[in-house]
Write a protein that binds this DNA or RNA. Sequence first.
DNA 1: GTAGGATCTAGAGTGCGCTCTAAGGCAAAC
DNA 2: GTTTGCCTTAGAGCGCACTCTAGATCCTAC
Lengths: 139, 139
Amino acid sequence: MSGLSIGQVAERTGLSVHTLRFYEREGLLAQPVRRGAAGHRIYDEGDVDWLGVCIRLRASGMPLTDIRRYTELVRAGQGNEAERLEVLREHRERVLAQRHELDECLKLITHKVDIYESRLGLRDHVPDCAPLSQESEPG
Amino acid sequence: MSGLSIGQVAERTGLSVHTLRFYEREGLLAQPVRRGAAGHRIYDEGDVDWLGVCIRLRASGMPLTDIRRYTELVRAGQGNEAERLEVLREHRERVLAQRHELDECLKLITHKVDIYESRLGLRDHVPDCAPLSQESEPG
DNA sequence: GTAGGATCTAGAGTGCGCTCTAAGGCAAAC
DNA sequence: GTTTGCCTTAGAGCGCACTCTAGATCCTAC
């Protein structure tokens, strides 16, 4: 019951088997994956958990090199917590900036959606301050 | 006073002149850019505004092909507002999903930051529910 | 015993979004 | 008149993160 094949891990994580091998080559796994009789990879729950972290870091835009760096710190063991913290804090700042940017985009998009909805009569009331958007000119 | 060189537009938008030419080739501009005596591009304020929109759409992850599609609709003029609206709504959904994902990542990162800060004695109180993170194991 | 399916490796290929190069034109400054 | 600097084009190159291919091995089922 202990041990997952690469296919099973792919299924659980949503990563492809290709990507799992790729991530391992890139040094993104906390430990080298255990191997079975025929040289097949055997993952444990810890690996899956760690991959979950990697996926989240990727999803928030952390480049693979940074994830590798962080992984190396973790692998090196106790004593480098300050460095780990720095990596995380820097990334958090970037994510916050990214979210702010996203919110600005959302404002713009929602503003345009509102305009088109009222133009198309999909709203009861015309939004109060929408005279002419950029898209009116070219048309 | 009317008319900006590609260099000036680059400065205003933060895009490189290379990227400006690239975007034009890719059909991201509402109109073909006016040309001066020596074949030099002359942008107007409307172009800069439109580029601002493109930049925001890009920043929120809209692929160039989708931006081109939207631009084409705008260029085609009145009568396709429903299509424009659909493009915008779909993108808004994606942006919202993206922001949600970002928030999840933020939770994870902040949780780890908290752990390391208390481990390093940078906090007055240990966060109430943080026994051992994944990173404790490998170390 | 052989067919199917999962796995392995090394390495090539892909898609996206730029980014840069090379070779040249024009215009103002010195 | 030549240097400087910004502009032009076509097209090549790059960085990232996968993604896939080829050729081989191994196990299970029929």
